[in-house]
């Protein structure tokens, strides 16, 4: 394994989630897959990953709420990459205002995602 950075992937679309997970794992990341917002919250309360990749539209807990939870309740600066099919300006701006680090509109290229994840992790490493 090149590195052992943990990635929390929150995506309700099973097929896409599997695909991304596979790609990230292939890229050398440890991927924790969560299907809905509730699971994500539970997991975050236990441990905070190196990076979070989440969809905006999820059951129980939306991507926006998740950002707010991480930034305001957990007070964590963990990088968050948002994936959304609703890539309109309002959503993008809202996500960035709340504290998202990156935004990807569907359809996504898994390879591109991999690059973005690496970039964000590098940033945090540099900051540390």
């Amino acid at each position: 394994m090149k590195n052992q950075s943990s990635v929390l992937l929150a995506e309700d679309d099973e097929l896409l989630a599997t695909l991304i997970k596979h790609r990230l794992e292939k890229g050398g990341y440890q991927v924790i897959l969560n299907r809905d917002g509730k699971e994500v919250k539970e997991h975050l309360n236990m441990s905070i990953p190196d990076i979070i990749i989440c969809d905006i539209m999820m059951p129980y807990f939306s991507g926006m709420e998740l950002i707010d939870f991480v930034r305001n309740e957990l007070n964590s600066n963990v990088p968050i990459i948002i994936i959304s099919s609703a890539g309109n300006e309002e959503n993008v701006l809202n996500a960035f205002e709340l504290g998202a680090n990156d935004f990807l509109s569907k359809p996504i290229s898994p390879s591109e995602l991999l690059v973005r994840v690496a970039k964000e992790l590098n940033k945090t490493k540099r900051a540390d």
């Binding site: 097929l15 896409l16 790609r23 569907k106 359809p107 996504i108 290229s109 898994p110 390879s111 591109e112």
Partner: peptide, 15 residues
């Protein structure tokens, strides 16, 4: 059907 579904969310080389 799976391929058709994946096609919507993917782009680039994977597509």
């Amino acid at each position: 059907d799976v391929l058709m579904d994946l096609r919507k969310d993917l782009s680039g080389n994977t597509l």
